[in-house]
Design a protein around this nucleic acid. Structure first.
Lengths: 113, 113
DNA sequence: TGCTTTACATACCAAAATGTAGGTAACCAT
DNA sequence: ATGGTTACCTACATTTTGGTATGTAAAGCA
């Protein structure tokens, strides 16, 4: 587990680096909401319960910076913007599925489902 | 993605619940350090670079509360305590391996390995 | 007697993540 | 002129997480 740098920040393991891309409360739900193709901002908000505007747009910006999603803005009024998963994000989907399944297993064991 | 409760806390997805068990900076490194069998406190500290006493013991306590590790204290002086993965933690190992691999892929793409 | 070892434990602080509430721009229909 | 639509964006506060430094118990050993 050798450490390395990415944009001035130090990472102690590749797991930590992966988490920097898909971790936090909202990034995975967003990625899952995009798994079937491009979705526009408003529809994303609808399909992710409880997410606030601020969280949605900050996380989308971070995902864009990390090259996990691409942003396509149509020149219309009112505006229309679609977000889409990149190849590197698509490669994360199997992990998200496993995590979902694992969380389901844990919640079942704890009797809260 | 129906929400549910576990010990007074609300979870919006099973992914979030899984992350509550294995997320954060240190839980996964700890779990990986325990993958080959019981390890005592001091050896854990050695095998996880940069971890502080506080982080090691708070995370171990949380992992114990979440039933991800068991604690075995031998009645000796000076004390001797070993930590061991539970079955539910063992089931998380494939995910950790995938995350490690994915982080490695991302770091390679970014050219920082 | 006092120093070492081991596995904690605590107080305090700093940084990061998240939440709440509101505002903006520009066009369109009424 | 007003209000609706859409996709942001900001200020601010709170919560959560992580880091630093230090302290404790109890036996063994010099």
């Amino acid at each position: 587990m050798s450490e390395f740098f990415h944009q001035q920040k130090k990472y102690y393991s590749t797991i930590e680096f992966a988490i920097a891309h898909i971790g936090g409360v909202w990034k995975m739900p967003i990625l899952l909401a995009l798994r079937n193709g491009p979705v526009r901002y408003g529809n994303l908000k609808e399909s992710i319960p409880h997410i606030s505007d601020k969280m949605l747009f900050t996380q989308l910006k971070e995902l864009e910076e990390r090259k996990m999603v691409t942003r396509h803005a149509y020149v219309e009024k009112p505006p229309r913007v679609e977000y889409q998963l990149t190849d590197r994000a698509l490669k994360a989907l199997p992990i998200l599925d496993l995590l979902q399944e694992y969380g389901h297993y844990l919640a079942t064991e704890e009797g809260c489902l």
